[in-house]
Design a protein around this nucleic acid. Sequence first.
DNA 1: GACAAATATTGTGCATGCAATTTTGAAATC
DNA 2: GATTTCAAAATTGCATGCACAATATTTGTC
Lengths: 223, 223
Amino acid sequence: MVDERQTRTEKLAGEIADAIIDGSLEPGTRLDEHMLAARYGTSRTPVREALRKLATTGLIELRPRRGAIVAEITSEQLETLFVAMGELEATCARLSALSMTPIERRRLGALHDSMADMVVRDDVEAYAAANIGFHTLFYAGSHNPVLADMAATLRRRLAPFRRAQFRAPGRLALSHSEHGAVMRAVLAGDAASAHAAMLHHVSLVEDAFEQLAAPPAARRQAL
Amino acid sequence: MVDERQTRTEKLAGEIADAIIDGSLEPGTRLDEHMLAARYGTSRTPVREALRKLATTGLIELRPRRGAIVAEITSEQLETLFVAMGELEATCARLSALSMTPIERRRLGALHDSMADMVVRDDVEAYAAANIGFHTLFYAGSHNPVLADMAATLRRRLAPFRRAQFRAPGRLALSHSEHGAVMRAVLAGDAASAHAAMLHHVSLVEDAFEQLAAPPAARRQAL
DNA sequence: GACAAATATTGTGCATGCAATTTTGAAATC
DNA sequence: GATTTCAAAATTGCATGCACAATATTTGTC
């Protein structure tokens, strides 16, 4: 059997979070403690502790004595989350411009180059995966784990709403060109430009989301 | 009896957090579940749930199967937290410049004016209290509850390390003048300047902290 | 006397059970 | 037929107990 070093609570928190992010648990779903305990083959205690943890990330809503539900997000709150993520990413880019090491800068350039090929091949899958890596480089490059954590948590939380971000025609090339602007500013050590470029880049993603809006019905049917 | 609407878990989380922030529970202290349960007159279950919650804010460290301790912070981590808070505050100021309502702008001006009197009277207590209000105005003014929450949480977490921030001579006047710069940029709707001015302002606070550094011994004795 | 191994003890992780609150459903009234 | 009232069911909050892992202590050996 796999070396089971993490506690049931942690494993549960991860699995429930995944189920929410990949859409198996829709927003508004009641998270009955008995039901979850039965589904994952444990008692209610670790389920309760996992729910508390998820509640702090905002993924679920915990109402005292009234149980937990998968967080329902209004389009207004979604907008707020996207803005917050954009600002955090921009801040990470700003700090990256100031404090990335030469090795980190080289990695950034290499990744950006390899992504150019994916654009040419129109390989959406590969690009989407590499895109996460690209942004993660700035989290790390900020050399500030606190901000990096916040940004990563938000990105994860918004994942369900970004699935189709590269579907629209021309998105890949546009994204790559935006990446280039951010990268050049960071490599030049220009903090203000890096901030502005990243903010502009993530705003585009937000726009892409809005074009796909009215998602509740669409997402439900997608199950 | 007081209307006890919140659960024991929530109340416990609050009380333990307060104890950590006001210094009753020193960094490194082991948080024995039985001990806490006895001290607060409950069973271990709500204590455990409260500890999980505090762990996500970073106030305590939860090591699987090895119990919880009040987070020990290295000066490096503290630096990271101060930088993160500075960036978040600067971001809130930036957004405030873009989206504060006329009413919020008027309140900002009024508070800043009233703080001038406190500087003249050298009323450190009043100024410290008003200072929190001043910064809180930007959290609200960002019109982004997600960012506002993050900033407020960080400010709270750093509170123990900022107690003496206005002690040094001339600090009050300096702080007030910095506030003025931030305020003017925000009122002028100059996002970039607001960002820069706030970043500069909170960096000063960080410097003030560093002058008081080597805090472990000093803080212990202060109990 | 120092170090290693074995044992005892403490403390966490989790299961289970009970009390109290919330929710649901049905009956009764308007 | 709609609405209110009340009781039953379901569900959460919390307490308690047990098993196992981690730590402390003791014992034995070099």
